[in-house]
C-alpha cells in the first residue's frame, strides 16, 4: 500500500435544476491522496468550493460501501468509472494518475431526468418494481421456511440476480437507454424461485410493460450494462426475461 498525492483536472457537468440547461465547468485539485475514494475526492472539491463561496457540486451518495446504489456518475465515458464491478464510492484514486483530466457527467437517459448537477431522478426503476417485482404475500400466514425447499444452486443463481443495487448504471451506459438488465434481474430472481411461480406470467408482462411505459429504450444486446454493472449481473438475466416474456405473451 503506497500512498501518493496526485493533481487532477476535473470537468464536471453543472446544472442548476431540472429546467436549466447545464454545461461543463473545469476545476483543478492538488494533492489528492491516492487512498481517497472518488467521492472523498469530490468532498475535497466541495469543501474548496464552499470556502471560495462557490456552489458545491451536488451528487447523490449514502452508504459509501457499494451497496445502497445511491451514488453514480459517468467518469470519462464509463458509468461508475474505469474499475470493473466497482461503484463510484468504492473507486479509489489510486486508479488515476497525476495530470489526468476526469470528465464527470450525470447518468443520462430520457427516463432519468437531471435534478441538479450529477443528481438524477431514477424513480422510474421503482415504478418497474411496483408493477410486479414482488411475491404477493401478506405479512403473517407464511409457511415454515423449510417447507419451501430450494436447491442450493438455484438459491445461488437467484442470489446472483438479486444482488442488483438499483443504481441505474445499466441504463446510463446502454447506448439505447434500456433498463433490461435491471428488470431482467428481478424477473429472473423470482422466476427461478418456487415462491415466484404463481405470478410468473403476470409479473413478466407487467414489468416489461411498465419498463416500456417509462421511456426506456430497447435492448440490442450491446452488453454495456453487464460490463459496467457494479455487481457483475449477467445479461443471462435478460435472456431469461425474454424467455419469460415470450412464454407469457405467446402461451398466455
Amino acid at each position: 500500500m503506497t500512498t501518493k498525492s496526485i493533481d487532477l483536472s476535473l470537468e464536471i457537468w453543472r446544472q442548476k435544476d431540472s429546467k436549466a440547461t447545464g454545461d461543463f465547468e473545469t476545476y483543478t485539485l492538488q494533492n489528492i491522496s491516492t487512498d481517497m475514494s472518488f467521492l472523498e475526492m469530490l468532498d475535497v472539491l466541495n469543501e474548496n468550493l464552499t470556502r471560495e463561496g462557490r456552489d458545491p457540486v451536488a451528487f447523490d451518495h449514502d452508504c459509501r460501501e457499494g451497496i445502497c446504489g445511491m451514488c453514480g456518475a459517468v467518469v470519462n465515458g464509463i458509468a461508475h468509472g474505469p474499475e470493473p464491478e466497482t461503484t463510484l464510492c468504492q473507486l479509489h484514486m489510486r486508479h488515476f494518475n497525476s495530470g489526468d483530466t476526469l470528465v464527470i457527467e450525470p447518468f443520462r437517459s430520457r427516463a432519468f431526468p437531471i435534478m441538479k448537477d450529477l443528481i438524477t431522478d431514477r424513480s422510474a426503476l421503482d415504478r418497474i418494481i411496483q408493477a410486479g417485482g414482488y411475491v404477493s404475500v401478506n405479512t403473517g400466514g407464511a409457511p415454515d421456511g423449510n417447507a419451501i425447499p430450494i436447491p442450493s444452486t438455484t438459491a445461488e443463481l437467484a442470489m446472483d440476480a438479486a444482488s442488483c443495487i438499483g443504481c441505474g448504471a445499466c441504463v446510463a451506459s446502454c447506448p439505447n437507454g434500456a433498463a433490461m438488465l435491471f428488470t431482467g434481474a428481478k424477473i429472473s430472481q423470482l422466476s427461478l424461485l418456487s415462491q415466484g411461480q404463481p405470478e410468473r406470467k403476470e409479473r413478466a408482462m407487467a414489468m416489461v410493460t411498465a419498463m416500456d411505459k417509462e421511456g426506456f429504450g430497447n435492448c440490442t444486446n450491446e452488453r454495456e450494462c453487464e460490463a459496467v454493472c457494479p455487481k457483475g449481473i449477467s445479461i443471462r438475466n435478460i435472456a431469461i426475461m425474454n424467455r419469460e416474456y415470450v412464454k407469457a405473451s405467446v402461451l398466455g
Binding site: 403473517g140 407464511a142 421456511g145 437467484a158 430472481q189 415462491q195
Partner: peptide
C-alpha cells in the same frame, strides 16, 4: 415468523444441498 415471511417473499437465503435453509 420473520424467517418464514422473508422466505415467502423470495429472499434468496443460503441453502444446504438438500434445499433446506443454511
Amino acid at each position: 415468523n420473520i424467517i418464514d415471511q422473508c422466505v415467502a417473499q423470495g429472499v434468496p437465503f443460503a441453502r444446504e444441498y438438500g434445499g433446506t435453509l443454511a
